[in-house]
Design a protein around this nucleic acid. Structure first.
Lengths: 236, 236
DNA sequence: ATGTGATTTGTACTATCGTACAAAAGATCA
DNA sequence: TGATCTTTTGTACGATAGTACAAATCACAT
């Protein structure tokens, strides 16, 4: 194995750079980019403000590094799961597997720390809401491939639905996913304690169940305001 | 008599207070609370920074007034539409009407300005993502009644679905709704120009269609783990 | 032990933040 | 018109922002 990080002083900060990254990730994800100062981050990481400048040059650079750290692994995981999902024979099962391949890494990726994937996804949600420029650029060029692959896969298993509808519905999926991570306490509150909004496993199951049904909704033909029959009973 | 609106200087600001509110709403909704300075708002409104202090005392007070201005009308509109929806006989139609009663005011409320409702809803989305304290308090005490009424109405038209599931799905609805207003350009981009993410009417129809189907999805009985193999793995 | 490069610290600089407040300007009515 | 109240302007103050940079400290090969 690699014995680089070993040191005589074990109980100390083994890697200040990592501590700063983790603190920044947490603070940005819960308070937004602009509400958090470099000094806040340094304080939370037990570091000196100057260290942040040393390791990441600017505050934007720090955010950039957070994205660089997570995007690769998460998209890799997604494409692995997507490839596996596409091999599922049963059409209904395949659609569910595809949705799961998109949702699960958003909650559980992130190498070491517990809830690492969820924290990064929440960060993306908040940056997206704030219209953060750094994030906007990275997301468009890093996630669009993944999104297109996902949309195509869904479309293949639902060929009778126009691609436009699939795009809208996958957009809703991402919005629902984001919001679940941004305000989980609202779920607990509105359910009067019967559900726990921060239960990732529950959120995933609920999300997958709901979104699969949303994808399977009848196509929205823009010409006809005439009513259609619901397809509730189409369960295998 | 009434010589208020027109004076020798005709094309001037008739009501500076309103101009400031509108500018703040727009800027907050697109950039977040912390990224926008009082000076930015004053500049956009053609006012002096001191005027903002005069009319709203603090920056928080300005945000508060934006909420006060919109919450009443939007919730009133929602409860009117909800009452009408509950009178619909056909169960399927009723559910759709209920969802519509929730969604439509979020896009189209706001008395005068075009897109006023959508702008305020986007503002709420952004404030929620930023964890804004002022917004958090107002929302919990102003919207929870509406949300409960909505959830109850949905539950009545889908009695076989546990209330917990309804709560989750209505949470997804709000997340999808928010996200549609936050990043409409993503829809246009991913659909390669075939759809317009900023088309409010299209967004409403797509959202209603998808969410109605999501609500109608089979209940998630937490007792049945006997599905196929869980794809939730742990990567390192 | 010592020299060397990597890291951490402390501090300072400039810009901008929210807000206060006095003076100017405008409006209203006896 | 002049008195009074409302609104707008201009400016200033203390706090805090991001960042730069020299000095101090650390890790480690020699």
């Amino acid at each position: 194995m690699i014995r680089k990080p070993t040191s005589k002083e074990a109980a100390r900060k083994p890697n200040m750079r990592e501590a700063i990254l983790a603190a920044a990730e947490e603070l940005f994800a819960t308070n937004g980019f602009n509400a958090v100062s470099v000094r806040d981050i340094a304080l939370a990481a037990g570091a000196n403000p100057g260290s942040v400048t040393y390791h990441f040059k600017t505050k934007d650079g720090l955010l950039l590094e957070i994205y660089r750290r997570h995007c690769g692994p998460m998209n890799l995981r997604r494409s692995e799961l997507l490839a596996a999902a596409k091999r599922v024979r049963d059409l209904q099962d395949r659609l569910e597997a595809i949705v799961r391949a998109y949702v699960v890494p958003a909650f559980t990726s992130g190498s070491d720390l517990a809830g690492g994937g969820a924290r990064f996804t929440r960060l993306r949600a908040v940056m997206s809401a704030e219209g953060n420029e750094v994030a906007r650029k990275i997301i468009a060029q890093t996630f669009d491939d993944t999104s297109h692959a996902f949309i195509d896969a869904v479309h293949e298993s639902l060929p009778h639905i126009p691609r436009t509808d699939i795009v809208w519905r996958s957009h809703f999926l991402l919005g629902a996913l984001y919001y679940s991570l941004v305000t989980p306490e609202r779920v607990s509150r509105l359910s009067r304690g019967e559900a726990d909004g921060s239960d990732a496993a529950a959120a995933i199951e609920q999300l997958v169940q709901a979104i699969v049904a949303a994808f399977q909704a009848p196509a929205l033909d823009q010409a006809a305001p005439a009513r259609r029959r619901p397809v509730v009973g189409s369960k295998a």
